[in-house]
Amino acid sequence: MKLIQHIERWLRRILLAISMLTTAFLVVLIPLNIAVRALSGQGWGASVQIVELAMVIIIFFALAEAEARKEHVDVSLFTNMLGTRTRAVVRFFERLLYAAFATLLGYYTLLRAIRSFERDETMWAGVSVILQWPFRFILPIGLAALLLTIIVHHFKESS
């Protein structure tokens, strides 16, 4: 259990760090693109697609951290009215369903990523073509981390 907690924490932190760095990269890229466009008149053709791909990293790699910090919005008003025991039971089934949902979403995005890899999926970025499939794997990775966080934190809370 200790080991799993350890893995969960590190996985979550590494993914968060990548998410943060990606945003920092955008903060530099966007003004740079504007500056280059203003000075040379030549914009960076692929900037739209680079930003779109960056968004995938920023969001899916921070999903687990958002869960750990209880940032995902829920309505606790009604469950708070229940007795402690009932609340614990409701909470258990709610977490079970949430974990099942994360698993399902992770599974189908993984299948999608594999299909994308097999077809060597590409996308137009301005006037050039870039590889898209590696970015598809960000979704199942982020969702796997989310699943791990849901499980580990539920056991931490209830023990």
Binding site: H72, V73, D74, V75, S76, F78, T79, V90, R91, F93, E94, L97, Y98, F101, A102
Partner: peptide, 8 residues
Amino acid sequence: VLRFPVWA
């Protein structure tokens, strides 16, 4: 009402 996260 069951306190399921809104997105899920």
